[in-house]
Design a protein around this nucleic acid. Structure first.
Lengths: 334, 334
DNA sequence: ATGAAAGCGCTAACAG
DNA sequence: CTGTTAGCGCTTTCAT
């Protein structure tokens, strides 16, 4: 049953019912009696205004698109939950899409989302810049925020951690513990954020007067198989590194496995700083020293920026939040 | 720009443009020339039919709701991704909600979703039966499938693993290895699926002629803190269990931690079967023997059932898929 | 092969 | 305080 039927049933005008049910009873000075009558009947009969009709009329559906590269990555699932929670509090629903770390899929889905009359879009990009992507983003008028992985487009507000500083943080921790032969494991080499973290590592090395060429880097993609391969490559190197930084979410799992197979104890023979704190990080053997991204704050900032944008504020902010080092037991003094 | 403006621009009727853009050009015998002209202009000007208008007219938006108890649980994030992928292939978008393992939130969100003119709803319940929930579900006419955790309502099609058989599988594996003192770690005691798995364990014990009272069970909720507490409780027991089954997703992490602290080697001093295969299961030390749910198949079955329902087929199926045992190194012969 | 027009359900401007 | 009405953008029946 829709609100016109309900109106007929109560012998009232649709508008009256509409006003009560959209909470504008006060504004229009509907009599308490009428308002109560409508409320009661609506609940009893389970009538709610059809959001499609309302959306069409109002020009807004109260829906925000969220496009992530991989919802099975704990970082993104936590981010998605935090974002959904906050948007829900502001009266918006979330439409979720997963681009499966594939730039082409991302582009296709982006097209879909942009044509769907959403109120806004939050994009956590795969992180590989492309002309087609920038074009899409530049063309649309939909309020848009980019989160986590930055892309090469100055026209869009974005939220992420300061990746250079985060890379530096990890490297400095290892350097302070006396490590000089350091290696990095990364995910996608085309990803901007891994690249930036790597730059931070380079800078820290330089500041400490350590030779650049001593830095080994391996890793071709985000898969477990590739993580294992990269870890193997790095640990085979001679002289072997004494400190390792894993730049991407699950890289640490491959490293732990390979280190174990080769009889390298952590932190005895090998110190490790892992990017992205995970729920299981502190439960591993040993508990892992990690770089933690402030997921809740990122979500809050993202949603706030989007809401501002929906209010017509059009400044282009690039919010860079600090990551933090969680010292546990996987790094030891050399 | 919308299709009426485009029509005016091309000096055509809206209906013609609509027919071309919704792919009904053939059906209505639109001339090739006109069709081409419309297509070209639409692409150039970036015009797509507004889904809200179309949805209002057609009575369907092409959107399916997905309500999960915890998107940060790898099981659900994988399930969500598989479901989204398949629905997308069938032309549907997914609206995601997370109930945070809270029955009250679940009820509230369910209300929202049911009033949102979705084409259908996939519900992965928190798993705690309640009258209010059943009432909501019974009242709605929206096509609905319940997945993973079963609830006590025969009126709704559902997809899940055979939890009793899965529990039995885990227990039989431990029994076959000679274990007699077995303990179970569970999540929410009110959850139907944990309860069913537990029943499977009981049945296996009974079949093997092992005393029921020897089965210890601990665990009050899905949090890490509670997991640690439950593991401690169980390992303190005298005589100590030699085999443990963790009934819920992340319980194994707490167990590993506590076992390590108490100097109990796995599988030397303690054999473990963990419910829910996780991406990191095979990378742990030792690689874990797990019960794996066929996530992709569950997603496929769920979507297929829902699509059938949308086609008007109203049979009430209760699909029970088999879980499987992944034998790795966390169980040893006693 | 195309156009005209009704109507999906709602909200808000206007009219009392 | 409440009713009447236009129109959001689209699809589809009917008409030609």
């Amino acid at each position: 049953m829709n609100i016109s039927e309900l109106a007929r049933h109560l012998d009232l005008a649709v508008s009256t019912v509409s006003r009560v049910l959209s909470g504008h009873a006060g504004k229009y000075r509907i009599s308490q009696r009428t308002a109560d009558r409508v409320q009661k009947a609506a609940i009893e009969l389970g009538v709610t205004p059809d959001p499609l009709g309302a959306g069409l009329r109002r020009g807004t559906l109260g829906m925000i698109g969220l496009l992530v590269p991989d919802i099975t990555n704990p970082f993104f699932s936590h981010l998605a939950r935090e974002i959904e929670l906050r948007l829900r509090d502001s009266g918006f629903a979330v439409q979720l899409c997963d681009s499966a770390e594939d730039p082409e899929t991302e582009l296709k889905l982006l097209g879909h989302l942009l044509s769907r009359r959403l109120d806004g879009l939050i994009l956590a990009p795969v992180g590989v810049d492309s002309e087609a992507l920038s074009f899409q983003l530049r063309r649309t008028a939909m309020p848009l925020i980019i989160v986590d992985r930055v892309i090469n487009d100055p026209g869009v507000p974005s939220v992420s951690i300061d990746n250079v500083a985060a890379g530096r943080l990890a490297a400095e921790h290892l350097l302070a513990a006396g490590h000089r032969r350091i290696a990095c494991l990364r995910g996608n080499p085309a990803s901007r954020s891994d690249e930036e973290r790597l730059r931070g590592v380079y800078e820290a090395l330089e500041d400490a007067g350590v030779d650049h060429s001593s830095l080994m880097v391996a890793g071709e993609s985000y898969t477990h198989e590739e993580n294992l391969k990269a870890a193997t490559t790095v640990l085979q190197q001679l002289p072997a590194p004494t400190g390792i930084i894993t730049l991407s979410g699950q890289g640490i799992l491959g490293l732990l496995r390979v280190a174990d197979e080769r009889g390298l104890s952590i932190p005895g023979a090998l110190s490790v700083v892992a990017f992205d704190e995970q729920p299981w990080s502190r439960f591993m053997r040993p508990p892992l020293t990690t770089i933690s991204q402030p997921i809740a704050e990122m979500a809050a900032e993202t949603v706030q920026l989007l809401l501002q944008r929906l209010d017509g504020i059009r400044e282009i902010a690039a919010s860079r939040l600090p990551a933090s080092l969680l010292c546990r037991d996987s790094v030891t003094m050399l």
